[in-house]
Simulated assay, not measured.
Amino acid sequence: MEEQTIFHIINNMDKVTNNLIVQWNKVFEEDLGVSHILVLGHLKVHGKSRPSDIAKILGLTPPTLTYLSEKLVQKNLAKRLVDDSDRRIIHLGITDKGIEVVQRANQKGVELRKRLFEQLTKEERKQLLTIYEKLNKSL
């Protein structure tokens, strides 16, 4: 019985996450996916980075990051930067337009989650917060 309950929790968590992504894609009108925004978010927080490092941190394959980077560069959201000390090393950096796009993407995500959590009562939100805090401490 306990195993079945855990399965239902995991299944429902996945459904919520997937539905949030679908809803975010509908309201964020930029022809970019969540993975593109994750790359831009990384660049915004960490500054210019080697693509291989970004791929490792985000859990992406190098070919996937190459694909994502190409679109970001084409849309002028990111730029390739040559390392001054070794011209063979390429970094990826975020542009001002990329910063603006990632900020709008994050705002849309906040709005979606706010609407989602407004479906819960005040007591349910408190319980959920307690649960998330407990799970975060265990990780």
Rank of each mutant, 00 (worst) to 15 (best):
D84R: 13
K97N: 14
A105D: 04
K108F: 06
L116Y: 12
F117E: 01
E111L: 13
T66N: 12
E70N: 15
Q127R: 10
I131W: 09
S52H: 11
I131F: 04
S85F: 11
T121D: 08
I54Q: 01
I54A: 05
V16P: 00
I94S: 04
V102G: 02
I90A: 05
K56T: 07
E30K: 08
K15S: 13
I57H: 13
L92G: 00
Q4S: 14
M1I: 08
D86K: 12
A55Q: 03
T66C: 04
H36P: 01
V73R: 10
H8T: 09
Y132F: 11
L20P: 09
P63V: 10
A55G: 04
E29N: 13
L43Q: 02
E123L: 08
D14E: 10
L65K: 08
W24S: 03
D14S: 12
V27M: 00
E123Y: 01
T121A: 00
L129C: 01
E29D: 15
K126L: 09
P51F: 03
I90R: 11
T130E: 12
N11G: 12
L60Q: 07
E133L: 07
K97D: 13
K134E: 05
R50N: 09
E3M: 10
I94L: 03
G98C: 05
I131L: 14
H42W: 06
K134L: 03
I131G: 08
R113F: 08
